[in-house]
Computed example of a mutant assay.
Amino acid sequence: MNSLTPLHVGPSHLRTLGPVSLAQGVYGARGNLELLACDAHDGLWVFWCNADLPTDPPADGDVGPGQWSDGLHFAAGDRYTRAQIVQSVLGPDHLEVLALTAQGILQSWYWSPEHGFLRRPTDAADSVRTFALAHEHGVLRVTTETSSGELRHFRSEAAGYPERSWADASEGPGLDDDALAALVAAGVAADDVEAGTARAARSTRGGGTLELTWRDAATGGIRHVAASLE
């Protein structure tokens, strides 16, 4: 993999909790990147990266090609320990967010260009210690580990969107998503990565890219590097 230069995401003073989540969006000529992080004290942060090239037609907004935005804070009033974001085919082009509170409630949110981020009245699950989210054709699949160590699987169909209901399922995504080996292969020193924060997501830019994120072990800041899959 040919690694590009690591980028800082968010202000240097920002402190976050847990691993961040990254998904490829649909905006711009090449599909922007969306990154979700839990504030260490209150709420959530979302950042977006202009993934276009300088030679592409200018995108809306004030974020230049190859740069990350300053970030948007939302969901104030709750402290979160883990959150995931995925690009939805519904809406169209809405974003789906599941966010786990410190009290073990797995909240369900979505983003639309008209209203921004909105929390749904129905939560996905409770008594959750950790979780994993997957999306396919508007269907959300979730695996949770409860506070007692039990694995549970849930599924939410697209019917009735933007509202969602959750039903028990027989299977779901795996919980083991550590990407430290991929980071090391991309040239990042393992000692520079805060334990448990290395994550990877695939994007289509550059003919296929592994988008790697982690929190810096020394500063606590969010980092992102793109590694070619070619």
Rank of each mutant, 00 (worst) to 15 (best):
R129E: 11
G187C: 09
L4Y: 08
G116K: 01
L72N: 06
E230N: 06
G138C: 04
T122Q: 15
P121S: 07
E150W: 00
W48F: 15
G160P: 12
D52M: 04
R215H: 12
L106S: 06
D78C: 15
A189R: 09
F117I: 05
F131K: 06
L22D: 07
R215P: 13
T81P: 00
T144A: 11
Y161R: 02
C38W: 13
P54D: 07
S112H: 01
W111I: 08
Q107V: 09
E230P: 03
A218G: 10
G196A: 14
L229C: 09
R152S: 08
A200Q: 10
E157W: 14
H41Y: 07
W109T: 11
Q24R: 12
R215E: 14
A226E: 12
R120S: 14
L44Q: 00
T219V: 08
S228A: 15
L106W: 04
F131G: 02
R119G: 03
L180D: 06
A132H: 08
P113L: 04
A201D: 10
S88W: 06
E114Y: 08
L90F: 03
P57N: 02
A217K: 10
F154N: 00
Y110S: 07
L98V: 12
S88G: 09
A23W: 02
P113Y: 06
A195M: 02
S165N: 10
A195W: 05
V128M: 00
A201T: 15
R30V: 03
A185F: 01
E136G: 04
A40M: 05
A125C: 03
L180T: 13
D52K: 02
D62F: 12
A181I: 03
T219D: 08
